[in-house]
Design a protein around this nucleic acid. Structure first.
Lengths: 207, 207
DNA sequence: ATTGATATTGGACCGATGGACAGGGCCTGG
DNA sequence: CCAGGCCCTGTCCATCGGTCCAATATCAAT
């Protein structure tokens, strides 16, 4: 995973290099050529068309962080809506930049703490607090059954699960039987789909 | 920095302990007594009044992550608005939980990739969106194999797929064999996991 | 003490699954 | 023309998965 700082030539900031000695420094055009899947790109918000650039790089699978000399909530929203995973001050200390890299490269979102409330709060009223159901997908299962269900849902075979839990394969089947019955499903496939939150055509089942 | 899992007594999930062996297990009332500044608290969304609990704990300086059996965007909104820094599936694998802990304890926000788009804005689907993921793994397959793979990944049996595509069950098996070989997986379970989620240890395989 | 839920195991049965081996036709690039 | 990819089909077979028939032991509640 390579690091790219995308900015005007004049804007190279020493502490960036301090934070990531291995990183590359490129302009917008080189960025489009060099940045690829899994790379981490830091894009300055003083570039013309930085939003488009961010979208493009995000679309090709890069992790994007937008850096700004003048952070503000509106710009943060633009950055996040463009697909960026982070928004920070361009002059953040090296240690903070590393923290941002850590967070964003682990599926996290990082925005300046001061801006957090406005960014997060703003996007929420659009959703509207609707009813969320307390589906008892797994809640209806016993402890043991949950354990088995989870193991199976990771793709493990009955035999493997049996070894792991130090029980007989036969017992695993018994638990699975109970699981299927309680959840109203037929096989482990449905279980996986259920646990990965896909809506599965629920079987009618008449027993 | 201590770890606390706040849930019903019945809901203790083995992989939580697997992820954080040192963590404590408490009910809502004990949580209010024991959780303090800098602690990381995981709160189940099936608790009565979890939102209030989250607000209280956040106010005293704790880092909060909400876990749900049935994640959905609306609930994610509630969680983040209550001050939580993370929102994940209660049955997330241990490695993912550690990732969430890493991100949230570093000022980051962590939300289920699938929900990211609805939480943050419009364009986040470019990242964790299902379409992209699919395109990635399915790119190596032929048209027909893709069709079969998707059908199987919906939980359909070979027989059903055969009927739908108007081919022999044998042919479905043949396609599946090619799919498994190309993707380096062993069975349909791995296929479902590959197509429906991200993590999951995939077998290496050398072809 | 009886009942109920939970966890465990046994055997047997049979359909579903996946691999091995072996073909058929079709089409495209060399 | 031929090699190679794609799509289709066949048989054989070992294994896996799910369900039916059980049974035993623990533990909590009635």
């Amino acid at each position: 995973m390579a690091h790219f700082f995308v900015c005007h030539g004049r804007d190279e900031i020493p502490r960036w290099r301090m934070a990531f000695p291995e990183s590359s420094w490129v302009g917008p055009t080189q960025a489009l050529e060099q940045v690829g899947r899994g790379d981490l790109a830091w894009v300055m918000s003083n570039l013309d068309g930085w939003e488009t650039l961010v979208r493009d790089l995000v679309n090709r699978g890069a992790v994007l962080v937008v850096l700004s000399y003048t952070p503000d909530p509106a710009e943060a929203s633009l950055a996040l809506n463009a697909g960026a995973r982070g928004y920070a001050h361009a002059l953040s200390p090296a240690v903070l930049l590393r923290q941002v890299a850590l967070v964003t490269s682990n599926q996290g979102i990082w925005v300046l703490p001061e801006l957090l409330s406005s960014v997060v709060g703003g996007t929420f009223k659009a959703l509207g607090g609707r009813a969320r159901m307390h589906g008892e997908t797994l809640a209806a299962l016993t402890e043991r059954e949950r354990t088995v269900a989870l193991a199976v849902a990771e793709g493990k075979s009955n035999k493997v699960v049996a070894r792991e839990l130090d029980i007989t394969e036969r017992t695993v089947k018994a638990h699975l039987g109970a699981i299927f019955r309680k959840l109203g499903i037929r096989d482990r496939m449905q279980l996986v789909l259920r646990l990965s939150q896909q809506e599965v055509g629920i079987a009618d089942h008449s027993h």
